[in-house]
Design a protein around this nucleic acid. Sequence first.
DNA 1: AACATATAGTAAGGGTACCTGATTAAAATG
DNA 2: CATTTTAATCAGGTACCCTTACTATATGTT
Lengths: 168, 168
Amino acid sequence: MANEIKAELAAGKLAEYEQLSKIYDDIVKQARPRLTVEGQGKILLALTDEDHLSQRQLATRLGMSPQSTSEFVYKLVKRELVTLTKSPKDRRVNLVNLTPAGRQEIESAAQEVPPFVRTLSDTELEQLSALMTKITTAMYADIDAANPTLGVKFHKLFASRYLKQFKK
Amino acid sequence: MANEIKAELAAGKLAEYEQLSKIYDDIVKQARPRLTVEGQGKILLALTDEDHLSQRQLATRLGMSPQSTSEFVYKLVKRELVTLTKSPKDRRVNLVNLTPAGRQEIESAAQEVPPFVRTLSDTELEQLSALMTKITTAMYADIDAANPTLGVKFHKLFASRYLKQFKK
DNA sequence: AACATATAGTAAGGGTACCTGATTAAAATG
DNA sequence: CATTTTAATCAGGTACCCTTACTATATGTT
């Protein structure tokens, strides 16, 4: 029972952080817009993992409706971050290809270390990283269990992206 | 410099969690819809803190445009979660009042402890709570510094809500 | 009292992220 | 060759937000 209360407290804190960060991003604006796992960003991220996917593949891999996928791809085409080419094998399918600008967009969407992370000591930072790794690992497992078609691949990319983006 | 790398790692993990939880909520659906700090939920939350606020007060307090506030209030009226009454002192202002159903809505929007939290041990749960508390505290401070009109009050309510919701 | 200005709220229109249902075109299959 | 399946799109919707008018009502000034 004591364990239960601790779990609830931790879950509450996590939820609080999540909600709070929505407000935080809004108020304490970041200079550069972040690449989120929504809409167009999701597409770009998937294409970084594997380029020249069909819209269908994107939709399945991202757990989105083909209609939404079509919409976001269209928007990315307008922004010249991707191009569309008809597949020679199957003239129904549109292959989505990252342009250099698209690649650039992903690269440049780096993120700064938010100031609130700086309040933690060295030891605390290590603890936090370890704990969050445990949590995200469990999350990946749950997501894959719930929707295997989404593919672990995307998630792995996802993870590595958030580790890599600070490098350099 | 070693510190810097640790900070980046932790920040990356936190960002990863944040993004991941968007997907998680989508895929591993929760039975009951959560009350988020967006749109209508934001209004309800603010009214829990203090009822009978004018739309203007809500807008300032929530850092939203008056137009958006108006929209969400209207939607809540349609859902019969709030009512509008003209202020007797100033006939321009609309006071927004929580109905019993509105109060009920907030109460019932409880949240379960997500399974991934269960993967942590007792000690880890304690560590996580402590770390997240430190982080959210810093976030509250930053938000207040950036936008004092938003008021700490709302945030405090916010915090307590996420601690209280599991009780009972 | 009369006029100017400030304030509360709304209407209209826009943008982003999604969804469902219906439709078109091309491929696969009986 | 006709039918069915599949890739993508169109049309229309919901939720969350914003900006630019515009309407009442208040208040401050002359």
